[in-house]
């Protein structure tokens, strides 16, 4: 390299400016969602005949997610005690009828109560295991995990390149997607960004709340507009594909066209209940008071998390999880040591 070339190279280096800060990759996990999927799918029992599918599967899934996403921090979020009360005040039937049926049909549980007990035991144990790992376990009384996740996903990206990955099979989170926020749906094994939402639903993530408001959510007992299905929604509201809409925009559209289709008329007739739907499902304004937000911000700022790999392994052996995680000593260090290195 001659002198001229060297000077040119040096000039270019100067123009690049200061070194860019490291970007954050935050993994936020809907804890109960991950647990239930494993609990319902994995019929694993330990040598004492105790069902351990939810517990072992939870950590297997958590490890796989960390390996895949390689986050710099991990939050596992759970519903707090009495978490659905706020929304029940708005809509008494919200989430009613849940937990009436067993979610497994294995002989290991003799009754529904037996299954419920196992859920609680394994879930409590999941928390105890999580406390030995450099992950943040978050819950707030009377607050749903969705609201916590929504708040975290809005405050965690500190710079343009930061990414937040929300892991849940709950479609509600799709409305949170933006240039920083990606949703991973484990059932489909697919990452949803703005483009994916557009391809699958023909609308922007911002309009997804309108979609949910009009369609309702059977699993939460939130009723949508009667007679409105996905195809009809796309046909009657082509504006959803074209621009971001507010609920007022939707009313105005329906008012101008209410004679054209009964669905438009039903929207006008059900303004009050649709507004409730919107309030219940809108995660851009999570149901959190100022104290809740302050607490969550403290959690975000806290560091020096506990990392006790030997204790994790001790719990694992105590629970006789055997081969649920292969070579657990290596696994725990392989997965969580890199994560712990960010935790300083």
């Amino acid at each position: 390299m001659d002198k001229k070339e060297l000077l040119k190279l040096l000039n270019n280096l100067e123009e690049q400016g200061p070194e860019t800060a490291q970007t954050d990759r935050v993994l936020i996990i809907d804890g109960l969602n991950l647990f239930f999927r494993n609990f319902a799918i994995l019929n694993a029992v330990n040598p004492d005949g105790v069902h351990v599918g939810g517990l072992g599967g939870f950590f297997r899934s958590l490890g796989a997610l960390i390996r895949q996403i390689q986050p710099t921090s991990v939050y596992v979020v759970f519903d707090g005690a009495g978490s659905s009360n706020n929304r029940k005040n708005l809509l008494p039937e919200y989430k009613s009828g849940r937990n009436l049926q067993r979610i497994t049909n294995w002989e290991v549980f003799e009754s529904h109560d037996d299954e419920d007990d196992a859920k609680v035991d394994q879930m409590v144990r999941v928390i105890q295991y999580l406390k030995t790992l450099p992950v943040k376990t978050v819950t707030l009384d009377k607050v749903e995990a969705d609201d916590i996740i929504a708040h975290l996903s809005s405050v965690l990206p500190k710079q343009k390149e930061d990414k937040v990955f929300i892991v849940s099979s709950d479609k509600d989170f799709l409305q949170l997607i933006n240039e920083n926020v990606i949703v991973y749906r484990p059932m489909e094994k697919e990452f949803y960004d703005e483009n994916t939402v557009r391809q699958k639903f023909n609308m922007s993530p911002q309009n997804f709340i309108i979609y949910k408001t009009l369609m309702g959510d059977n699993s939460d007992k939130v009723k949508g507009v009667k007679g409105l299905g996905e195809k009809k929604l796309q046909k009657l509201f082509p504006e959803l594909q074209e621009r971001d809409l507010t609920l007022d925009d939707v009313y105005n559209l329906c008012e101008s066209k209410f004679k054209e289709h009964v669905i438009y008329a039903r929207v006008i007739q059900n303004i009050d209940s649709l507004e409730k739907n919107y309030k219940i499902m809108d995660l851009s304004n999570p149901m959190l008071d100022e104290n809740d937000k302050t607490y969550l911000n403290t959690v975000v700022d806290s560091d020096n998390l506990m990392y006790l790999p030997e204790q994790f392994v001790a719990f694992y052996n105590e629970d006789k999880l055997g081969g649920m995680i292969r070579n657990v000593e290596f696994w725990v260090k392989d997965i969580f040591e890199p994560l712990n290195s960010y935790n300083k």
């Binding site: 804890g31 109960l32 330990n46 105790v50 351990v52 517990l55 759970f78 519903d79 707090g80 005690a81 009495g82 978490s83 419920d116 007990d117 859920k119 609680v120 035991d121 394994q122 879930m123 409590v124 144990r125 928390i127 105890q128 406390k131 376990t137 978050v138 819950t139 009384d141 506990m306 105590e318 629970d319």
Partner: peptide, 23 residues
């Protein structure tokens, strides 16, 4: 696996376990 008290709902059990300070 230690058996917990069964009086709690799942969210109550999770919540109290998270709040239980690690000592």
């Amino acid at each position: 696996m230690p058996r917990g008290k069964k009086s709690k709902s799942l969210s109550e059990a999770v919540s109290s376990e998270i709040k239980a300070n690690f000592n």
